[in-house]
């Protein structure tokens, strides 16, 4: 066979043009949108690091001339709401004490729910599931007052545990759906094999299913942490000032009418409140996307 000769002209991989008109428009728009979206955050950070005299100059976008962390300290430990002047820290710890039990309770119950609905079909399980899902579409406002009465009757109204119960109930539909779909995507034969191997309801759940479901647990944790942490409505309705969660306290600090508006303290307080969901997102963003995708494969 004769030697093959390559001719002049296109050869190998097709070259891509970086600075094509399409790319310029595309990245230009992306950049613009990103700036638009990040600008408020920038203003907040910059303002929280300025002293009040500098803020009064009115240059909202200028970086601080003299960086001070005093507003952050004040927001955390000294800001006043009503007669209490111990800052946001109290609200933070309240929120933590509300978050942890709500998280553990809602996720443990919902994961078992989802597992039972996906793998142990019982008579009426579909009906039960549908009723539960309808719960996800009923506006919270409709249930506000009935739950006040309910909590009053069982003696939990105004307490931290009352709010924990409310968060657990309202997390149930969406979390159950999430877990059910995830467990339904795990091959049925695995479940059958475990039954042949003599594992029961809890044995299969704890030793076969749980070790395989880290992604979906991460999704559930993120959903619940951000949801519960950012909740304002339930916090303000079902608790008393002593146990107000951080968001409610933040509102009270920012909206307090007496004295001078301390914009730097308000900004710092707001940033502090948003810190927990932010950290959760950054720490687990990758797992979050994977879990959402995994749960979505089979419905």
């Amino acid at each position: 066979m004769s030697e093959r000769v390559l001719e002049d002209g296109p050869r190998g991989a097709k070259p891509t043009k970086r600075l094509s008109r399409k790319n310029i428009i595309l990245y230009g728009i992306l950049l613009l949108v990103a700036i638009y979206y990040l600008l408020p955050l920038y203003v907040m950070i910059v303002t929280s690091l300025k002293g009040m005299p500098e803020i009064r100059l009115g240059n909202v976008f200028s970086p601080p001339v003299e960086i001070t962390f005093q507003p952050w300290v004040k927001a955390w430990a000294e800001a006043c709401t009503g007669i209490n002047c111990d800052g946001l820290s109290r609200g933070f710890w309240n929120s933590v004490r509300i978050l942890i039990p709500s998280l553990v309770l809602s996720i443990s119950i919902a994961s078992v729910n989802g597992y039972a609905l996906a793998n142990w079909r019982f008579k009426g399980s579909e009906v039960f599931f549908n009723i539960l899902i309808i719960g996800a579409f009923i506006p919270y406002q409709v249930m506000l007052y009935p739950i006040v009465i309910l909590l009053r009757e069982i003696g939990l109204y105004g307490s931290l545990w009352g709010l924990v119960l409310v968060h657990t109930i309202f997390g149930m539909p969406i979390l159950t759906l999430l877990f059910r779909n995830y467990f339904a995507s795990i091959p049925d034969e695995l479940f059958k094999a475990a039954r042949v191997d003599g594992a029961g309801f809890w044995g299969i759940f704890l030793r076969i299913m749980l070790p395989m479901s880290l992604p979906i647990f991460v999704v559930a944790i993120i959903l619940q942490v951000t949801g519960i942490w950012n909740d304002f409505l339930f916090g303000v309705v079902y608790t008393k000032p002593d146990v107000y969660p951080m968001t409610v306290q933040l509102n009270n600090i920012v909206n307090s009418v007496q004295g001078v508006k301390e914009y730097n303290v308000n900004m710092a307080a707001t940033l502090l409140t948003g810190l927990v969901p932010l950290i959760i997102y950054f720490a687990s963003g990758k797992l979050f996307v994977r879990g959402i995708a995994a749960g979505a494969v089979k419905g």
Binding site: P187, E189, L190, K192, A193, A194, R195, V196, D197, G198, I208, P211, M212
Partner: peptide, 20 residues
């Protein structure tokens, strides 16, 4: 009887090994 009480062993098409 439960599957485990029947004195049977089963092999599946997808192997169904416990991945962890």
């Amino acid at each position: 009887a439960e599957p485990s009480e029947r004195g049977i062993g089963m092999v599946f098409q997808s192997y169904a090994l416990y991945p962890q």
